[in-house]
Design a protein around this nucleic acid. Sequence first.
RNA 1: GUGGGCGUAGCUCAGCUGGUAGAGCACCCGGUUGUGGUCCGGGAUGUCGCGGGUUCGAGCCCCGUCGCUCACCCCA
Length: 426
Amino acid sequence: MSGDFQAPKGVSEYFPPRSGIFEKVVRKLEQVSLAANYHLIELPVFEDTQLFTRGVGESTDVVTKEMYTFEDRAGRSLTLRPEGTAGVIRSIIEHGLDRGQLPVKLYYRGPFFRAERPQAGRYRQFYQFGIEAVGLDDPYLDAEVISIAHRGFLSLGLKNFDLQITSLGDEESRSKHRVEFLKFLSTLDLDGETLEKVKKNPLRIFDDKRSEIQAQLKGAPVLLDFLTAESSMKFAAVKGALTELGIPFVVNTTMVRGLDYYTGTAFEFVHKGLGAQASIGGGGRYDRLMRTLGGQDLSGIGFGLGIDRIILALESEGLVDSSNENSKLNGGYLDLFIIPIGDAAKLRAINLIENVRKSGFVADMGFGDRSLKGAMKAADKLSARHVLVLGDAELQSGQGRLKRMSDGVEESITLDSIVATLKNSL
RNA sequence: GUGGGCGUAGCUCAGCUGGUAGAGCACCCGGUUGUGGUCCGGGAUGUCGCGGGUUCGAGCCCCGUCGCUCACCCCA
């Protein structure tokens, strides 16, 4: 530990070589989303506090104790976004994006903030990638959204994860179940704190990890058994589509989502190689959110994936080598490294490098005053494919020897043809 | 908010029952004059998280404090 400052508690930071993995994850997820016609929406990281209290739900932990809320200079209450969907919906309504063709298909990514106690895979500033399909209530759209997340994970090489799904049904389904469930809960022996929790959202009790609680929950009325015919058919359609797509899933009858706006389809991707925070992504349908925020009565569905956790998952599956700084996987390599000897050579080198870079190659040069041997070592450490030593002789003759580092073979070239030579070497 | 573990070189860590610090990796220089990867030689680096106490003497013991970490609650 050195220096006078350190990062605020619980934030994740990515610097090379790990930042290369971060970029790769985001790029892959963008790729699969774009391929399904979802497009980028870039939003502010802070919003009117009310957007979240109303949108996410007053009873959720996210709103009651995890928001970074502050006042701006005019006394407005603002909050660093704890999740992505509310902001997306706000923007859709505000800009009338839902007035054209439906569904509106968007993806977003960036930092999110929750004031929690940090632990493995849980940060106060964390990164999410998410998509939203808004405006249509079609179970096949649910399946599409899930399949995009699934495809994203597969394209990153992940294997050790499960997809869990359930249906939270519509309001009728839930109120019928709620009556029976509360009746059941009243027969249990629960402590005060748990009773409080149950009051806010009875289903939350399923998240309790204490075995004495879990034991009591055996035989509890299951929401899935109370689905209306319509909800039931939709859920069956989602499952059918997933099966058709060859996407394995397990129905989790006790799955609980942390945000209040979910209705109908809800899902979660759980990775087995992580700690207590095993969810690498989740989402679901929300029928009321848009109306709640003052928009049209349109349904939507989306997911949020935790980039930090995906990286942990990749590492747990041995899919990235964070110790190898220049692993190609991390994008760390150079097409050309020029070693100039003397100031005149540096001037020429910086010029040559510029041209090489313009042609799309990755190039760097030796700065400072290292020994030639030291500079060669540096080139090697940087995984340079070619090295060119530029000294007085080369400056005068305009000729040089391009060394291929893989086998040490040197090729005589004219300095002006270096780009062409590099192209030929591919 | 609650509980456990830990804080020693840039990184990973060692340091026995208290005697003022070490290894590996990384980094720099060199192994003759302008060419890397292996090998060999050399080198720099720490207020041992911070403050106080016990002691002739503390990285090792005690107290406090800050930080990190894992777990609970909850979630990405």
